[in-house]
Design a protein around this nucleic acid. Sequence first.
DNA 1: AAAGTAACCTGCCCGC
DNA 2: TGCGGGCAGGTTACTT
Length: 279
Amino acid sequence: MPELPEVETIRRGLEKEVLHKRIIDVQINLPRLIKNLTENQFKTRLTGSFIKTIKRRGKYLLCLLNTKDCLIFHLGMSGLLLYLGKDMRTIPKIKEKHNHLSISFEDASKIIYNDVRQFGKIWLIREGEKLPAIESLGWEPLDDKFTFQIFFDLFRNKKGGIKSQLMNQKYITGVGNIYANEALFQAGIHPQRKSDSLTDQELQKLYFAIKDTLKRAILCDGTTMADESYRNIWGKPGNFAEHILIYGKKNGHCPICGNPLSLIRIENRSTFVCTACQK
DNA sequence: AAAGTAACCTGCCCGC
DNA sequence: TGCGGGCAGGTTACTT
């Protein structure tokens, strides 16, 4: 599910609702999701603290606490963070049996971690402690310091296919299957092109397409496909699906030339291509 | 270095 | 109606 725009939408939502609210209770229903502590250690260290700031790194959410601890979420394929105000018990269409973690605040509101497929991961670390999964992440595509020159140097000598490399979090972080498909289409580049075969002009188009696609998706609060599995913290879907050009359009047609779209698999992920427009 | 496969999970959809 | 296969916004380990 959640790629950079969805995680950023969740981050902004949490920032509005839970900063500086004292945590009074932590309930864990699926201890497996907590990766580096026992259930009790996690509860004990979290209870009584409050979140000071919330950052995002790629698809990770980092909640910095007043105790100098850092609560980290990776939402996997189907993870959701849901905010329930005082007296709210559920959110329509969200199944309670997939609520795996609940953090309650002093004002009787809470956040719930819900995850159908259970691929999500949660850590509680000391601020400054290093998590290898995060240390190895590459560039933030929307960071101003991520210049075209850096992008160019990253990919111009790589022999592999461009789509695989765009999705490789150690080069650029936050781009997943939807936005890789969309950016490559917008740039007119076939996903199986070898990176080192791309011209300067093609790389430039791709660089801007990635930034543009991600920014527009954030403005729409992310992508919720027909299955509605992605929701923001208030349970609302994102609106970027209506701007999606090719991802998920099985048996669909190219919005530019009208030719039928091809569906191929790259590293086991569905990849949509217009072979007329993407060379 | 690159690409394929399977594994981790549950649920839904499709064809038979 | 039911069953099996395939597929789903991700990551990792292991193999070719």
